[in-house]
Write a protein that binds this DNA or RNA. Structure first.
Lengths: 195, 195
DNA sequence: CGAAGGTGGGTGAGTGCTCACTCACCCTGT
DNA sequence: ACAGGGTGAGTGAGCACTCACCCACCTTCG
């Protein structure tokens, strides 16, 4: 129908949108086709099945957190530790806010979840990766002497990212804490434990 | 069929079991009836609809975290702070491990999620409540002088419970960290920030 | 006492609907 | 001419839910 975008992109967009609004199990082929401005049959010219379409949405539309973490790990000592932790927490909070509702839907379809877990394993990614990435960054700062030698970097990483993730599901949209001040408070509190 | 339990209980058990194993959207009336050892029609003698059945499973079968927190708040100063934080973290980790997969399923059915949110609001409960409860406990300890006067108790509560919640979804069952040592590491790390 | 009748928990056999998916065919650019 | 992206009209399967009926057990009362 409208728009210059190729149909494949419009289909992914429509599926993504529906997963967020009405939920995975009401994101039917009919609704996706309507949202994308094409027929149901057209979906099957681009994707082998509805399951494959969802896998594509998950792998092509969800943002990544890893790049920020690995860039920081690469040069520990840049910026202050508090600035860096705050930025990580802010990015993580926004990341989980976006991806959590979709990822959570997978628990309703364990078969789809298994396929997705497998796809993630093959791509060398997964939900535990940010924790490991932050752990690695903290160990780099530890080696640089900016984090106490006896600090438990894995526990610290679990605390910070856990709080950011939980923010995405513990609150109604109406009372969701603002990402920036929330991140700053977490970072400041955690910092007291690290040095 | 078998068992002395009344049918209503057997139906709730079967629905609960299926939600955990095959996921909400494959937990069909037919499968639930089979699991409970009765006919599909019997389900409707006990519950008005499948949606109401799931609401009942969620409100009657999910464990509660609040009692532990409020009992600790009632008498701050009992036990050491580290022991108490460790116990809270351990209980929280087990709580989220049990309830997370089911609660997450709701994101696939936003209509069901809305009904559940509403039911929780009426019961005065919700996912943000443990955070508030732990915050209250920490403030009580602060008043008793066992937590630094300038500590951010809300941020600390978010960190500890967030890490416990994230443990439930960031890891495959195969590599899920043991609750007890995980809790101890979190508590020890957070403690360094609190005093 | 014993039949009449109400009641709560149960069933087998549907019913209508929605779903993912397919098929025969079409249009347009190269 | 034909390949690739598109379509309207299905199709069978599976779904939540209903219906007419059953039966064991209790009251109630002639």
């Amino acid at each position: 129908m409208q728009s210059g975008k190729p149909a494949r992109e419009r289909i992914l967009d429509a599926a993504h949108e529906l997963m967020l609004t009405v939920g995975l199990s009401r994101a039917t082929t009919k609704e996706i086709a309507k949202g994308a401005g094409c027929s149901e049959a057209a979906l099957y010219k681009h994707f082998a099945s509805k399951e494959e379409l969802f896998i594509r949405v998950l792998t092509e539309r969800l943002p990544r957190l890893a790049p920020l973490l690995s860039s920081l790990t690469a040069e520990p000592g840049r910026g202050t530790l508090e600035e860096n932790l705050t930025e990580i927490a802010r990015e993580a909070a926004l990341f989980y806010e976006q991806s959590f509702p979709i990822a959570a839907s997978l628990y309703a379809e364990t078969q789809l979840k298994r396929r997705h877990d497998e796809a993630m394993r093959e791509m060398g990614t997964g939900p535990h990766l940010p924790i490991e990435g932050l752990d690695a960054y903290l160990r780099a700062e530890q080696a640089a002497g900016r984090v106490r030698a006896d600090a438990d970097t894995f526990a610290a990483a679990s605390l910070l990212l856990g709080a950011c993730a939980q923010r995405a599901f513990a609150y109604d949209a109406a009372v969701l804490p603002e990402a920036e001040p929330f991140a700053a408070r977490l970072a400041r509190t955690l910092l007291a434990a690290l040095r």
